[in-house]
């Protein structure tokens, strides 16, 4: 594969008869401001005991897909993950909801 040059440089190469004698000094980089709209997810956690706690507490920081694509994990693994979200990543979860969330996640049956 050939190196990829900025379009301006390719044009300069194509137009310049001197190209074989001296590579032109590259033009300074010019920047174009960027503004984008991010897609959003409308996926929520499926119904089940505790689904409301999970939907209310987890989706502000990440979409549900991150959780629902996890492999089957043990209660200990989910406890560790939820504790990390609360204590390290400072998710404002009511202590009363923590066990509900862990139980919901542990009961998930990942489907293909």
């Amino acid at each position: 594969m050939n190196p990829i040059y900025p379009a301006a440089l390719i044009a300069a190469l194509a137009l310049s008869p001197l190209v074989a004698l001296a590579a032109p000094a590259p033009e300074p980089m010019r920047f174009t401001s960027q503004s984008i709209a991010m897609p959003t997810s409308d996926r929520i956690f499926p119904d089940g005991p505790g689904a409301e706690a999970v939907n209310n507490n987890c989706l502000a920081c990440h979409s549900a897909g991150m959780v629902l694509t996890q492999p089957k994990l043990t209660k200990a693994q989910w406890t560790e993950t939820v504790n990390k979200m609360v204590h390290v990543y400072k998710a404002p979860v009511d202590q009363a909801d923590v066990q509900t969330i862990v139980d919901y996640l542990t009961a998930l049956k990942p489907t293909p």
């Binding site: 709209a37 897609p39 959003t40 997810s41 409308d42 996926r43 929520i44 499926p46 119904d47 089940g48 689904a51 409301e52 939907n55 209310n56 989706l59 502000a60 897909g65 629902l68 998930l108 489907t111």
Partner: peptide
């Protein structure tokens, strides 16, 4: 903007979904 749900109206659609079938997993976009 893609997708319909923002955190504020998420509750409105709770309960309207089946279990995590791919239909729910794949966004409309």
């Amino acid at each position: 903007m893609h997708g319909l749900d923002r955190p504020t109206n998420r509750r409105l659609v709770l309960g309207g979904l089946g279990l995590g079938s791919l239909g729910a997993a794949i966004p409309a976009w």
